[in-house]
Design a binder for these strands. Structure first.
Lengths: 192, 192
DNA sequence: TTGACAAATGGAGACGACCTCCATATTTTA
DNA sequence: TAAAATATGGAGGTCGTCTCCATTTGTCAA
């Protein structure tokens, strides 16, 4: 999949400069409002170079958050290894909301990556979905969650949380969505 | 709020033509891919006229779905008047998914309207949120749902469903999200 | 070191979508 | 019917996005 490409020295340097600039802009919150060309100017490279390294704004966003998303996935695996499955899932989902809350850009990025209509799901997005799928599967095997549902619904809920990041009461509502999902995932009442 | 503006005869005619064209494109599924200018050409009006009547694509989308959204709100009120509150809420949410499934454009529109970062929430979106808020409040008063949660979480979940409309397994996942939300909304198990 | 080849650069300018402006046309009013 | 008010349309300005290719930079073998 990820064919190794021995990058030339200057190429690697420019690429790093672009990423560094993008990270700064991300932290400042202006990533999605800045002209794409300006990343180049800010990083001191030409526009052509920018586009060769990152064909789209989404590609750049993904690269910026590549580490962060990988960390989230690691965290998922770690939780899964050390906690009962249901608890691992809950902790992970709560942690996702924390992350989105702390890094405004992450919510925007995730929702952008997930909504990517270009078909090919970005690697980070796919990895994240796999992590959630594993967590849910483990909880299922443990008998902690109902068996008529898969991880897609959870992804969709996360998607909603990310996409709605500008709602006035976002944090509280996001926590509520997670609570609803987690409570809903247990065996439903038998009085239905 | 909505100041009555006696529209001139030709103005009303052009407006209607634009709406008719937009409806057709909506049903064909191409609304969000078509150049905004082309709505004008297709409807046989000038671009200036298009922009005077509908300053943005979102405004046009809202106008197209004004009737549909109003119908959804009416339906919510009607369900609320004829069914136990919890059942009314469930039926309404299921119906929303049906609607989004049947009219591909509606999901896209709702998610676009809700995500509208321009601050001022469009009228249709606000009306819909009010309808959901009322349904949840009624269910709460009836004691059918937990009391530590409001309608915002439900809106967020709907948002996620709409925003994720291009997921391969959308329909099943959307139904699952609704199920999770509804089951989660009941009193949680006491073994937590 | 040097020559030759491959890899990468940068930025001018093509392109395309969005939107404005105003001379002209249509409707309404008196 | 004439004047005033209202609406039209589309040429063209603006602004991001993205491409193209002449030039520069790095690599490697001799």
């Amino acid at each position: 999949m990820t064919a190794d490409k021995p990058l030339r020295a200057d190429a690697r340097r420019k690429r790093e400069a672009l990423l560094a600039t993008a990270r700064e802009v991300f932290d400042a919150g202006g990533f999605f409002d800045l002209r794409f060309d300006d990343f180049a100017r800010l990083a001191g490279v030409g526009t052509g170079t920018l586009y060769r390294h990152f064909p789209t704004r989404e590609a750049l966003a993904e690269a910026v958050y590549h580490g962060e998303v990988a960390a989230l996935c690691d965290r998922a695996r770690q939780l899964q290894a050390t906690l009962p499955a249901a608890e691992a899932l809950a902790t992970f989902l709560r942690g996702m909301v924390d992350h989105m809350d702390a890094h405004e850009g992450l919510a925007r990025t995730l929702s952008t990556l997930m909504a990517d209509r270009s078909g090919a799901l970005a690697e980070g997005s796919r990895a994240l979905e796999q992590a959630v799928t594993d967590l849910v599967a483990a909880a299922l095997q443990e008998g902690a969650v109902r068996d008529d549902m898969d991880a897609g619904a959870v992804m969709m809920a996360l998607h909603g949380i990310g996409a709605a990041h500008d709602r006035p009461n976002w944090r509280a509502e996001a926590d509520d969505v997670i609570t609803l999902v987690l409570d809903g995932l247990r065996r439903p009442h038998s009085d239905g």
